[in-house]
Simulated scan of single mutants.
Amino acid sequence: MFRKLTPYLFVAPLMLFIAVFTYIPIIMSLDLSFRQWNFLSPDMPFVGLRNYEQLLSSSELWNSLRVTALFTILSVPLRLGLAVVIASFLARENVSSRLLRGALFLPSVTSTVSIGVVFSWVFATDYGMVNALLVKIGLGRVQWLQEPHLALWVLIFVNTWKQLGYDVVIYIAGLQAIPRELYDAAAIDGGKWLRVFRRVTLPLVMPTTYFLLVISVIEAFQVFTIVDVMTHGGPAGSTDMLVNLLYEIGFVLFDIGRGSALAVLLFILLIALALLKSRIIGRRVHYEA
């Protein structure tokens, strides 16, 4: 009897941790999304779907959804495209490749707050390094974080710089699983690097691309810290992501019911996106098979 229970006893602490910090908060958020609460009042009256109605009728939600979707569409292909190209050069086992891998991976384990603060200085209008270089070459200063059409691109650049190393390492693992004989055969046939990359490398790392696509989209929809540190959702709402709107509603305005409703909507949206991508990927894998 004890032998049968032993595996469950080993995983029990982890399951308890997941239940306390994941499943119970999800259930509580769902319950709070149907109530009105401001953290201070002991009363939490049931208001039904009113929080959802207020959210869906607000321009702030649709603006945040548009900004988040735009950020995802622009940043994810850029990240994955750069990562697979860089990984193809660093997949060889030598000292220089290992050093470059470590240098690229370092930002992904660095504090996001620190990165946001540093790049806020780098792109500062009056004393930033970027504008200092522009002035040196005879160009004027640019308000990188104050112009609505530039601020989002700055965030995309910073987020790509931070996450690129992780994507490169995952791609390297996928590239090293490709049989070397395929590249040797392509070299014998006289294939150029670009042709080999397009015809051999890209198709064979497609499972890795699918994996990174799923987690990159989820990560893009959950971006918060860099935005909060660098732009606070501005200027004029041009970088106001969904999670930043959730934070503002829940922890600035103390409208916990409406904030929980937004959290539930975001959860449903991410589940829907994951299912859609799984369906598309499943069809692609079945087609390739």
Rank of each mutant, 00 (worst) to 15 (best):
G174Y: 00
G174A: 11
L175S: 10
Q176L: 13
Q176F: 00
A177D: 07
A177Q: 14
I178M: 10
I178W: 07
P179T: 00
R180V: 15
E181H: 13
E181Q: 15
L182K: 01
Y183W: 01
Y183P: 03
Y183M: 02
A185W: 11
A185G: 08
A185Q: 14
A186V: 01
A186I: 02
A186S: 12
A186H: 00
A187Q: 13
A187N: 11
A187I: 02
I188V: 13
I188A: 01
D189H: 05
D189W: 04
D189I: 04
K192E: 08
L194R: 03
L194E: 04
L194D: 05
V196Y: 00
V196A: 12
F197K: 01
F197N: 02
F197P: 02
R198L: 14
R199C: 08
L202G: 13
L202H: 13
L202T: 12
P203L: 03
L204P: 03
V205T: 01
V205R: 05
V205D: 04
P207M: 10
T208E: 06
T209F: 13
T209M: 14
T209S: 12
T209P: 10
Y210I: 14
Y210W: 12
Y210M: 15
Y210V: 14
F211S: 10
F211W: 14
S216K: 03
S216C: 01
V217R: 04
V217K: 00
I218S: 10
I218M: 14
E219Y: 07
E219D: 12
E219G: 13
A220I: 02
F221S: 09
